[in-house]
Each structure stands twice: as structure tokens, then as C-alpha cells.
Nucleic acid binder design. Structure first.
Length: 466
RNA sequence: UCCCCAGUAGCUCAGUCGGUUAGAGCGGUGGACUGUUAAUCCAUGUGUCGUUGGUUCGAAUCCAACCUGGGGAGCCA
């Protein structure tokens, strides 16, 4: 007698007549006067629940089975039978129903079998995994993560676990969370009255990382093809549907590669992982298309079928200037594109993901490789309709003199970058990489509109419960 | 952080141009019916109307501040 998971039962892995035990949580119970009850049990192995048919001849039928409500946990022993009803091929003819855990008060169990708002479910981050939508998101998220690793592994990339704690606050890529073991109510001070970080755990100021890029570049300049996939932290006071204080990022970094190589890699990767979702999570995607976003599947199919549109920043500016639309923020060569501009390009002008390349150097980071025109850098953004920037990347400046010049121009402390500069002093090579916000990808794929609903326990300003 | 909107039963919301007893659907519960499947039908309970303060004879309805949530912006992934 085997412990069976719902996915395998529904897929017909067991022969009719096999006796199995299925364990999970009750989604719904329906009683029939024919002397049977139907109990839908889900265990997370797939979108659908399995139906158990429970006859009223079981000793605990009236005392327990008929009292089962949504959320109760059960272990049901029975035989696999072909279903007499519509909606499923196989079901379980129960011979024994063991109630593992009751729901204290069905009236106040937060996950009632009905529509709930995403905002409401967010208040129950510990119970929402039992809902259709959170379960589907979780499986799609897993599928995407596995596909990302598989994609890079198949192409000879190595996964680098870059550090989560960093002592470099100089990248200037946003506010950092401080990491300290000092007693905040009694801080040690130096002679000058400043906090004496020499007495802190690392002997200097430490923070949570905002990016693994600089660290992973060192490995690209040794193992050629590498990537990071880990958590990232930004202490920005961002209150939007596409920002989190703690999120996961994928950052490939490739030696001997240029910007066009990165654009191609980004396109290949996105198509690869989206294909995996369509193939492996058809059940969940069908749900998203039904209930969350009717274009969820067709959008992905179209993305896979079409080449990404490439566009130079300079050309994008011309398009925006001549499109006849008036924007809240005026468009001029040299300005950073606003959300409204990016939305227009991705959603209206192209209607699909678009890769913007070669931005003015003055609005981009110090490490981006300068183009020969002296005005732009080899940077790219992949803009997805509805989400905005999903990928940001660049070729890295591998020429030490040019890198140093940028550090000086941007008044960054050169000594903080000694080890980073070493990569240019010892056997430097052209290299490039990009960063993909994992939650933004999950949101794009599922059609979920708020990034807080595609990560198990969202952290954002004023919210780190659970 | 800025702008806009909202906060009324377990949930989703309607309502009140300030005035005696605040509504619907869903969920829950009880029943009817049924190899059912977001079933269907009947019955049924529930609310210090976000918090604090103010205006008023009287506030859930008006005003203010605050809190929480949503949409948008900035920052970015």
C-alpha cells in the first residue's frame, strides 16, 4: 500500500484497483443523499485536487467525515477507481478516513472556499499557500528557478554564491541595510564622537548586498561563464507593486562577451524558462489564464515565437519625440527614460519585450563600458509590457585607465575598488553581464500584478511579518 | 518619500445631501435535493461603520491628524 501524491493519481500512475493512501488538506466537501460524500483533497503536487468518494458505511462517517470543512488535514485510504462523474478520470474510493487535524472554527478560518482579495491573502502569508493562486504561483516560481539553473548549467555556466554580507557601501546602487552586532542603545564611540565600527563584528561597517555583480565579475574573469542566483536587499522606501526590500536576482556574467552577446543571452534565457513553464506547469498556467490574466498563456507563446526588438537609446528618443504623444516628462537626448516612456515603447510602440541599448554614459553606472562615440555606454535594459524593466545589463569597462577616469568623475573612493581594479590590472578581458529580477519575472509569467504576491513572505517598508 | 483613492458584518462591497430599527452577495451554520465537483434550492446569525480629536442638539455620515491598504510617480531588478 503506497502513499500516493495527487499528481500521480490524477495522471493515472496507479492501476485501477490499487490501494493507496492520499494525504493532504480538504478543499471542499459535498454530501450526497445517495449515501456518499465527495471530498476534494489537495496536497500541492499539482493544481488540481483529487476527489475521494466516501461511503456512509464508514464507522466515522457521521461523527467525523460529515464534519470535515475546508482546511482540515486528512489521510484517506482507498482504492483507485475510474470516476463515474465528470471532471476527472480517476478518483479514490475511500475505505478509511483518518482526520489528522481539524479546523478549529470553520467560520473564522481565513481561507474560506471563495474569492479573496490579494491584499487580504497577504495578511495570511502562512495560510495563503493553501489557496489555488498561491499554490500555482509557488509551483511556477519553482519551475522558473529550476529552468534558470538548468539553462545556465546546460551552457557551461557555473553558479557562484556571492556574499550576502558586504563591507562595500560605495557602489551607490541604493540604500543599504546595516549589519551590526553593536548594542544600538549603547554605541561605542571614537575620540571624535563617531560610532567606532572597529568594535563591530567585522571591524568595519557592514551591509546586506545590493548586487552580486562586482563579486561575480572576479569569477567571470577566471571561469569565463558564471551566474549568481540569490537574495538581494535594498533599503529604499519604495512603495510600489514591483519593488521589494528583499528580492532574488539572477546575474550572469560572461568573459569575452560584449553587449550584443548579453542581449542574445537574455533573450535565449527568457525564452528557455518560459517554454519550461508552458511545458511543465500547464495546469497552473491555465488557471492564471482563467482567473488572473486572460493573456497569460498567449503572451508567453508570442514572446517565445518572436524575436526581441532591439533599439538604440538614441533611436528610442527619436521615436518618443515623434510619436505624437505628450508625456508628463519631456523627452530629450541625455535624460533617463521615465516609466511612461518605457511603457509607451514596450506596450504601445512594440507590444512586446524590447531591448534598449547604448544609453548616455552620464545616467549610468561607473562600471559600464564606454562606447567609441564618447557619449554612450554599452548598457541595455529589457523592458517588458506591464512590468517595465525586467533586466538591466551592460558590458563592463575592462580598460583600467577608462575605469579610473569614471571613478574619479563620479567621485567614488578609488581605494574601495582596489580588488575590482585588480581584475583590470591582471589579465583583463572584455566581459559583460546583466541582472534579472526574479520576482518581476514570476509576475510577468503569471500575470500577477503585485510583486508581493509572487514571493512567499514579502518584505517591504513597514512590513516584515511572519 | 510625493500625488490620488479607499478603510461599513468572517470576506467582497452597496449605502447615508448628518437625524429613530445599517443592507446585499459570498462564506459559515441548519435543512431539502443530488455521483457531486466554485453544485442547486430553502432557512439563519453577525456589525462599538479604521483610530483619535473636533464641529453639532445629534456623526458611521462633515472637518483635522494619524494608521492601514490600493493605484500612480521617484528609486531600481
Amino acid at each position: 500500500m503506497a502513499f500516493a501524491v495527487v499528481k500521480e493519481i490524477l495522471a493515472g500512475k496507479y492501476a485501477v484497483g490499487d490501494t493507496i493512501v492520499v494525504r493532504g488538506w480538504v478543499r471542499t466537501r459535498r454530501d450526497s443523499k445517495a449515501g456518499i460524500s465527495f471530498i476534494n483533497v489537495h496536497d500541492g503536487s499539482c493544481f488540481d485536487a483529487v476527489q475521494a468518494v466516501v461511503p456512509n458505511t464508514l464507522p466515522n462517517y457521521s461523527s467525523e467525515v460529515q464534519k470535515l470543512t475546508t482546511g482540515c488535514s486528512v489521510a484517506i485510504t482507498g482504492s483507485i477507481v475510474e470516476s463515474e462523474g465528470q471532471g476527472q478520470d480517476f478518483e479514490v474510493q475511500a475505505s478509511h478516513v483518518e482526520v489528522l487535524g481539524w479546523v478549529e472554527d470553520p467560520d473564522t478560518y481565513p481561507m474560506a472556499p471563495k474569492r479573496h482579495s490579494m491584499e487580504y491573502l497577504r495578511e495570511f502569508a502562512h495560510l495563503r499557500p493553501r489557496t489555488n493562486v498561491a499554490g500555482a504561483v509557488t509551483r511556477v516560481r519553482h519551475c522558473l528557478a529550476q529552468a534558470v539553473h538548468r539553462f545556465f548549467h546546460e551552457r557551461g555556466f557555473y553558479w557562484i554564491s556571492t556574499p550576502i554580507i558586504t563591507t562595500s557601501d560605495a557602489e551607490g546602487a541604493g540604500e543599504l541595510f546595516r549589519v551590526s552586532t553593536l548594542d544600538m542603545t549603547n554605541l561605542p564611540l571614537t575620540d571624535k564622537g563617531k560610532v567606532d565600527y572597529k568594535q563591530d563584528f567585522f571591524g568595519k561597517e557592514a551591509f546586506l548586498t545590493v548586487s552580486g555583480q562586482l563579486n561575480v565579475e572576479a569569477f567571470a574573469c577566471a571561469l569565463s561563464k558564471v551566474y549568481t542566483f540569490g537574495p538581494t536587499f535594498r533599503a529604499e522606501n519604495s512603495n510600489t507593486s514591483r519593488h521589494l526590500a528583499e528580492f532574488w536576482m539572477i546575474e550572469p556574467e560572461v568573459a569575452f562577451a560584449d553587449l550584443d552577446d548579453m542581449a542574445a543571452l537574455a533573450e535565449d534565457m527568457l525564452k528557455y524558462v518560459l517554454k519550461a513553464v508552458l511545458e511543465e506547469r500547464a495546469d497552473d498556467m491555465q488557471f492564471f489564464a482563467q482567473r488572473i490574466d486572460k493573456n497569460a498563456i498567449t503572451r508567453i507563446e508570442q514572446l517565445i515565437a518572436n524575436d526581441f526588438v532591439h533599439m538604440d537609446y538614441t533611436d528610442a528618443i527619436e521615436i518618443l519625440k515623434n510619436c505624437g504623444k505628450t508625456f508628463d516628462y519631456p523627452v530629450e537626448w541625455g535624460v533617463d527614460l521615465q516609466s511612461e516612456h518605457e511603457r509607451y515603447l514596450a506596450e504601445e510602440h512594440v507590444g512586446a519585450p524590447v531591448i534598449l541599448k547604448n544609453y548616455p554614459r552620464d545616467i549610468k553606472a561607473f562600471y559600464m563600458r564606454q562606447n567609441d562615440d564618447g557619449k554612450t555606454v554599452a548598457a541595455m535594459d529589457v523592458l517588458a509590457p506591464g512590468i517595465g524593466e525586467i533586466i538591466g545589463g551592460s558590458a563592463r569597462e575592462e580598460r583600467l585607465d577608462l575605469l579610473d577616469k569614471r571613478l574619479e568623475e563620479m567621485k567614488l573612493p578609488k581605494e574601495e575598488y582596489d580588488w575590482y581594479r585588480d581584475l583590470r590590472r591582471y589579465g583583463t578581458v572584455p566581459h559583460a553581464g546583466f541582472g534579472l529580477g526574479f520576482e518581476r519575472l514570476v509576475a510577468y509569467v503569471t500575470g500577477m500584478t503585485n510583486i508581493r504576491d509572487v514571493i512567499p513572505y514579502p518584505r517591504s517598508p513597514n512590513n516584515a511579518d511572519f
